[in-house]
Nucleic acid binder design. Structure first.
Lengths: 206, 206
DNA sequence: TTATGGTTCAACCAATTGATTAAACCTTTT
DNA sequence: AAAAGGTTTAATCAATTGGTTGAACCATAA
């Protein structure tokens, strides 16, 4: 009755959000159930009441993190667009989505490197088949001599993904190197959203 | 007396190497002292006898991992070379060094994201001042209108680093996406060492 | 009012983990 | 050979961690 302003949030939701924050920041191994409980302002038993175990809770967080980041992009890749336009919107869309969820890349990469098996399956079943048409489209363009240096599709795709994702993963290094605060980093990303789509097209297509 | 072929290795060294492997693979939080001891084929007490604590042991591993990866590159950046040549050799050298220590990038990035304070200082004191001349050189070139799209130095540098480092960090994704085994991945990197230096120059300098 | 059933909590448990200890072992020195 | 000192080991500790339990709480329905 004190400040129930916007506290319609259920306990289950509070737990999930706290878990998401802690898992994102510390990873599975570094996360503590007690810390999640504290951040959600509830008793630790509640975690197990709603999610059974740390593994199950992590699974939920992980799944939603991936779901939030990937499908929107994947849809784009399956559209029937000319390569040039697809490249441009891929870069722009991807950067924009990650900007809204900037801690997801580090999170995914970290868990993918420390405990591959847990999620390789997800990638194999959800991502690969949706990216394949895009790869094929690039391969075809390469065979037709439309790609700079006749690079194979794998190299082109990695160059794309690298330039999109790495700045978020390397944020702490970046901030030290260029003496950026968080606002500076955001401005840096905005600048990227602005020039990178055209830049990528230019450096990829003849 | 069985197979003491090359076992001149001291216990201290065996511990360090085992620790390096385990820390690289699992990170600080995921690493277990017992696992390190097992991998080194020694009693767990030896870890503490030689390195006092898990933290101290980690510190040693971390420091050497950084030392091994960074100085060689940093030296290059301070040489008095024309930008074009410096770019080329920067990409080639950096890729070659990481190829020899392919698990270091993920390791550094992971710890940098989970526990920034532990190492920010190292970067600030060791890396920044050595990279600065390189940044300045690019900034100057940009002012002189020699950079494609007149990109600011920060964007150029990040594009470089992204394309060099990310493939190693994203190896698990890459392997799923393109159905690569470890040999395939190495071939992929070799291909990169081959074309990326010139490619980067072309996409950076007018 | 009271019975019901979902929710919350404090107390507790078993297992794991980093760390310590004291004795045994081995190599070198005297 | 015996003393000395560094090295190795097994046993053990205290703290932490994920997880469990049973009772209390509280809203809703009979």
């Amino acid at each position: 009755m004190a400040d129930d302003k916007l506290e319609k949030e259920s306990t289950e939701e509070k737990i999930f959000e706290a878990a998401r924050d802690v898992f994102h920041q510390k990873g599975f191994d570094g996360a503590r159930m007690q810390e999640i409980a504290d951040r959600a302002n509830i008793n630790k038993s509640m975690l197990h009441y709603y999610y059974r175990s740390k593994d199950k809770l992590f699974e939920k967080v992980y799944q939603l993190s991936l779901m939030r980041a990937i499908p929107k992009i994947v849809i784009l890749l399956n559209k029937d667009l000319p390569l040039e336009e697809k490249l441009r919107s891929f870069v722009r869309e991807y950067l924009t989505i990650i900007k809204k969820n900037p801690d997801i890349p580090s999170f995914i990469i970290r868990e993918l490197n420390t405990n591959p098996s847990r999620i390789q399956e997800f990638f194999r079943s959800q991502v690969v088949k949706n990216v394949q048409p895009f790869i094929d489209q690039i391969s075809e363009a390469s065979r037709e001599g439309k790609i700079v240096d006749n690079l194979p599709a794998e190299q082109v795709v990695i160059n794309l993904i690298s330039m999109i994702i790495f700045p978020f993963i390397g944020k702490p290094i970046l901030q030290i190197l260029f003496e950026m605060d968080d606002a500076g980093f955001e401005a840096f990303i905005d600048q990227r959203i602005d020039y990178l789509p055209d830049y990528v097209v230019k450096m990829t297509l003849k």
